[in-house]
Amino acid sequence: MERELTPSESLKLIETMISQAKQSFHRQSFYFLLWGALLIAAMIFNYVMAMQGSPIGSYGWAVVGMVGGLLSWWRGAREAKHQHVHTMMDRMIAWLWAGFLATLFITMLGSGISGDPMNVGAIIVLTGLPTFLTGQLMRFKPLILGGILFWVLGAISFFVDMRAVALLYIVAMFFGYLVPGYLLKRQEDGLRTA
C-alpha cells in the first residue's frame, strides 16, 4: 500500500473507508427483543392478578425491571469485551436510553410515593420518544414506525378502560419492540458488526 495515489484514487479510498466505518455499529436487537418479551409478560401478569383481585400484580414490574436490567448489563459487558470501535451513534443511543430509564424511574417512583399512580398511557407515550429517535439515528424504519405507534396507542390509552389499556400496551410492545427487534436482528445477522 505504498505507491503514489492519484487524486481520484484518494477520494475513492476515503469514501470506501468512511462507508466501512459506518457499517461498524453495535448490535441493538437483543435489547428490543428482551424488553419487549419481559414487558409483555409483566403486563399479562399484572392484568391477570388484577382480574383476580390480587395486589401482587405490580411486583411483576419490579421483577421484570431487575431481570431485564441484569440481563442488559450482562450483555453490555460481554459486548464491550469484543468491541473494536466506538461510534458517536452508539454513544448517543446508549445515553438516550439511559436518560429515558432515569426519566421513567424518577416519574414512577415519585408517582408511587405520592400515591398518584402514573397513567399507563403516559408510559406508552414516553416510550415512543427513545424508540422513534433510535430508529431515526439508525435510519431503521420499523423502529421509527414503532415509535409513532407508541405515541398513537398511548394517546388512545388515556380514553379507554383498564382492560383495553392492557391490550393496547401489549400491542404497542409487540409492534414497537418485538417486531422491529426481530427485523433488526435479521439485518444485523446479515451485516458485519463490530
Binding site: E2, L5, K22, V85, T87, M88, A194
Partner: peptide, 22 residues
Amino acid sequence: HNQLRLAIVSLLVGVDSADFNF
C-alpha cells in the same frame, strides 16, 4: 497522501475511536 495513512485517517473520521484490530 499515502494509501495506508489515508485509509487509517478516513476510518477514524467516522468513529469516536477504533482499536488496532479494527
